[in-house]
């Protein structure tokens, strides 16, 4: 097999993994730090994309629209946490059902607000050549974005007061209470952060994924699987599963057929869950 083909396959598979990781990160943070599975994650991703699209259309540069989209989704996330999630702590499956209801509501609201087909915009694109093959440049940039995202979240969790409080709240909840950490405020922020990360994903994926009300759904299922297979050490674990599952599926699809790639994803998920029944990171000693 030609070397240039292999290099392109590897590079683009890495970018596929990065895209999955970006889409799953918010979910991983919320699951890792609060033990909550947010089934409305895909709708927060969609809201991020619509926010960025609307703001860019209003004349704001695309790069600037991303932080605004993050802020908007964070604010909505905070409201959702206070109104719904905070009443359901410790009830994992109830939270899942409530957020599923929320996702139905948000989806329909988006249809009402934006219609089913919102005109998209030109966003900067470039490409690179490797031998006989051409690759889109933007998905390659996303590899870097994913790495920077991971580093920033790691720093946020280890170097800031919030991060320490958040980790204390999950590792030693009673102790955290005793030393005066207001876990409800920490949780509100954590959930908002997760929603903001979903919004970020929607905004940065906008150049390659069109904004539609149901756009998040395609990512949601695989993101959930990646996060759950990752297990309790959500950040590092999800980074690994995103590369393994997302990248592996992409390579399989390149070498065989698209259907084989999908089947690879689901089968490997099942095998991993079988071998690591509590997630691959269940026995790790690190906590992030």
């Amino acid at each position: 097999m030609e070397i240039d083909f292999l290099v392109t396959v590897l590079l683009s598979s890495l970018s596929s993994a990065a895209i999955l990781l970006i889409a799953a990160m918010g979910l991983a943070v919320v699951f890792g730090l609060m033990g909550v599975i947010n089934l409305a994650h895909s709708e927060f991703l969609m809201m991020g994309a619509y926010a960025a699209l609307t703001i860019t259309k209003a004349g704001v540069p695309y790069l600037l629209s991303i932080p605004i989209a993050v802020a908007i989704t964070m604010a909505i996330g905070a409201v959702v946490e206070i109104l719904i999630i905070s009443r359901l702590y410790g009830r994992l499956f109830d939270t899942m059902l409530a957020t599923w209801g929320l996702s139905m509501v948000l989806l329909q609201l988006a249809v009402l607000l934006f219609g089913t087909a919102t005109p998209s915009i030109n966003l900067p694109q470039f490409n690179i050549s490797i031998g006989d093959y051409q690759l889109a440049g933007y998905p390659l940039i996303l590899i870097g974005v994913a790495v920077i995202m991971l580093i920033l979240i790691y720093l946020l969790m280890t170097k800031t007061t919030y991060g320490m409080q958040a980790r204390a709240s999950i590792q030693e909840p009673e102790m955290a209470q005793a030393i005066g950490i207001e876990s409800s405020r920490v949780n509100t922020f954590t959930f908002a952060l997760g929603c903001g990360l979903a919004g970020f994903a929607g905004a940065v994926l906008l150049p390659i994924i069109p904004a539609t009300p149901s756009m998040g759904m395609a990512f949601a299922v695989k993101s959930f699987l990646a996060v759950v297979v990752a297990g309790p050490v959500a950040l590092t674990g999800t980074a690994l599963t995103a590369i393994g599952l997302g990248g592996g599926a992409s390579i399989t699809a390149s070498l065989l057929t698209s259907v084989a790639g999908e089947v690879f994803f689901f089968i490997i998920t099942a095998v991993l869950l079988w071998r690591y029944p509590m997630g691959i990171s269940a026995k790790w000693r690190r906590k992030l």
Partner: peptide, 27 residues
């Protein structure tokens, strides 16, 4: 058999059953 004999966690069990359904849907 896979779920119970591997002693899967609660969330993992739910997700595996979901994966099973999705896989059927896809194929």
């Amino acid at each position: 058999y896979i779920i119970f004999y591997a002693r899967m966690g609660a969330l993992q069990s739910t997700i595996l059953s979901y994966t099973f359904t999705l896989l059927l849907w896809s194929v």
